[in-house]
Each structure stands twice: as structure tokens, then as C-alpha cells.
């Protein structure tokens, strides 16, 4: 009985520790420089943490530090309800001056947007556009359709007919859908052929297996569109297993084009395994989001209220000049 109750307590403690460990990490940037009244406490809520999110957080922290702001960060682990609760805590319990949010879901974030509006707390959305954009103080995202189009132009610029595998991210993610649509539209206009679409749900194993299956069904494949550098290792593994992973210039080489510009992409460009990467300018997200928080806190409206920043291309031809601007190459 004693063992039983001791174990029960131990499990309870372990569960609480785990939940604390798994849920969120609060971090702050030490304020420097600015006068006390201009220093803001800004709540930052992300959908999850991975390489690109860490880089986006670093950009926000750097911009905040320059203005003397304090950052209170939480991650929702891809749980929309958890994100709503976390934002409620930031606004009501911690009384932050503004919130910067990457929404888990662009529709389900509506209640948080309404709460921020009711409490007169500026709500700034980055990376993923919010459906209820009219009530958002400021929104800055990439331009997924333009980025997909840029990726397609890179593929079409390669010599010879293009027979393409198109990987698709989660179909509930507007960035994934936008990248797919932009790519498809441009490829169709340019006369390329998408031989197979591979749904991945942003899952590495699905990307690996799906690519292997598509290569199996279409031996003539010579191009793969990967909608995020996140999935690049899976595609490389599938090509390696099929005996088709070869550097640029090798007759066996399969043309690869991705989006994001993360460290994986940067290393693959350097290793001559990746042809082109459409780089998302995430540094601008951080600077403009913090600027917008200050403008809104001073009682003005940021103008324009929304911004969609298209990416730029780093490829084998321009990597020497573009790598310094690519966030993944700097980390």
C-alpha cells in the first residue's frame, strides 16, 4: 500500500514536471537603452518550436532587445486550445502590452483576437495569416503563392523536360496550400508535368515513404518540389535508397527545389545536393512585428496593416552573394 501511494505521488510529480517541460518555455530579453515608458512587455505565442520557429523567435528577441522590450514566450505544441489559453494568460494574468502570434490555426485563433481587441492589447500575427484579419493590429507573413511560383520558375529554368514529384504539406495549413497552388499554376503555365503529388502532413516519414513510392511509380522523375526544407532530409533519404542521390552536374542528379532557407537547405546547397531554395525573409518578421507593437502602443495604427513579403532565391549560381542574406546560412 505504501509502495502504491509512493508510486502514485511519484507519477503525479513526474507528470507535472513533464507537462511543464513539454508545454512551454518562458524567456526574456534584458531591456537595454530605451526610456522606461517606451519599454514594452510583449507576449509571444508560437504554434510550435522547430528550426524556423527558433530563428523567428531569435529575430523577435533581437528586435526587442534593440528597443529595450521584454519578451514573454510560450509555445502551444500545435494545440489550438492550448494556444488560446496561453494567450489569455498573457493578456489577462501577465498584462502584456502586446502579443505577437504564429497561430496554430488561422480560424481557431479568432477568440484570442477578439479578447485582445476587447482588452485593447495590440495583436500582431506573423508567418501564418489570420482569417479574421480585420481585427488584427498588424500582420506580416511570407507570400506562399509567390514563393511556390518562384520555386516553379527555378524548376522550369533547368534544361530539358521536367517530370516532377510535388510534395504537399498539411492541407489544413494555408502556407502549404499556397505554396502548392503557386507552384502548380506556374508549372502548368510553363509546360512542366507534375507526375505525382505526395501528401505529407508535414510528417518526415510520410514524406520519405511517399517520395519512395512516387519514384517507384515514375522512374522518369527528374525534379522534386519540396515545400519546406524541413522535409529535405526525407527526400534525400528516399533518393539515396533509390540510388538517385547525386550532386548537381551528375547525370543521375534529380533537380531539387525547396522553400524556407533553413540550415538544412543551406548545407545542401553548399554540398551541391540542392539546386534552389526560396528563402523566407523571417528577419523582417521580427523587426516589423516589434515596430508595429510600438506604433500601436503609442495609439497609432500601423500602416499598412498587412504585409506579405515574398521570398528570394538562393541557388547554385548565386549562393556566394545570397548566403549572407539567408537566415539558415547564418545559424
Amino acid at each position: 500500500m505504501k509502495l502504491r501511494s509512493t508510486l502514485g505521488i511519484a507519477i503525479g510529480t513526474l507528470a507535472i514536471v513533464g507537462m511543464l517541460a513539454g508545454c512551454s518555455t518562458a524567456t526574456t530579453s534584458k531591456p537595454v537603452g530605451a526610456s522606461e515608458k517606451d519599454k514594452l512587455t510583449i507576449g509571444v505565442s508560437f504554434d510550435l518550436l522547430n528550426d524556423i520557429r527558433n530563428a523567428e523567435l531569435d529575430a523577435i528577441k533581437a528586435a526587442a532587445k534593440a528597443k529595450g522590450d521584454t519578451i514573454d514566450f510560450v509555445s502551444a505544441d500545435q494545440d489550438a486550445q492550448k494556444q488560446a489559453s496561453q494567450i489569455q494568460d498573457l493578456i489577462q494574468s501577465k498584462s502584456v502590452d502586446a502579443v505577437i502570434v504564429i497561430a496554430v490555426n488561422s480560424d481557431q485563433i479568432a477568440s484570442s483576437v477578439a479578447l485582445a481587441k476587447a482588452k485593447s492589447v495590440p495583436f500582431i500575427a506573423i508567418d501564418r495569416a489570420i482569417a479574421d484579419a480585420g481585427n488584427v493590429t498588424f500582420q506580416i507573413t511570407g507570400d506562399p503563392i509567390a514563393d511556390g511560383g518562384l520555386a516553379a520558375k527555378e524548376a522550369l529554368a533547368a534544361s530539358g523536360d521536367r517530370t516532377i514529384i510535388q510534395l504537399v504539406g498539411a492541407l489544413t495549413d494555408q502556407n502549404a496550400v499556397g505554396r502548392r497552388d503557386g507552384f502548380t499554376k506556374e508549372i502548368e503555365a510553363g509546360g512542366g508535368t507534375v507526375a505525382a503529388q505526395v501528401p505529407t502532413d508535414w510528417d518526415l516519414t510520410k514524406a520519405l515513404d511517399g517520395t519512395a513510392n512516387a519514384l517507384q511509380a515514375n522512374p522518369a522523375i527528374n525534379t522534386i518540389f519540396i515545400p519546406s526544407d524541413y522535409l529535405l532530409p526525407s527526400v534525400e533519404s528516399a533518393l539515396k535508397a533509390a540510388g538517385r542521390l547525386a550532386p548537381v552536374g551528375d547525370p543521375k542528379h534529380v533537380f531539387l527545389v525547396t522553400i524556407d532557407g533553413d540550415p538544412n537547405g543551406c548545407k545542401a546547397i553548399e554540398a551541391k545536393l540542392l539546386d534552389s531554395d526560396v528563402v523566407t525573409p523571417i528577419g523582417q518578421f521580427g523587426v516589423q512585428a516589434i515596430d508595429a507593437a510600438h506604433v500601436a502602443h503609442s495609439g497609432k495604427k500601423p500602416s499598412p496593416a498587412t504585409a506579405a513579403v515574398p521570398g528570394f532565391v538562393i541557388n547554385q549560381a548565386n549562393q556566394a552573394s545570397e548566403s549572407s542574406k539567408t537566415w539558415g546560412c547564418a545559424s
Binding site: 508510486l7 507519477i11 513533464g18 507537462m19 517541460a21 513539454g22 518550436l49 528550426d51 509555445s75
Partner: peptide, 29 residues
């Protein structure tokens, strides 16, 4: 030995394991 239903135990340990893994990797790839 603690008499906790398996679903509850493993739901809690899911959080614990993913949390520890997240700390070890610092959520990077």
C-alpha cells in the same frame, strides 16, 4: 503497482517523454 489506468499513465508519460526529448534537442533538428 500504483493502480493508475494505463491510459492515464501513458498520457502523462507521453508529455514527459516528449518534454525531455524537446529539452535534449532544444527543439532543433
Amino acid at each position: 503497482y500504483a493502480g493508475v489506468p494505463a491510459m492515464i499513465v501513458t498520457l502523462a508519460s507521453l508529455q514527459v517523454f516528449r518534454g525531455i526529448g524537446g529539452h535534449v534537442t532544444e527543439q532543433r533538428s
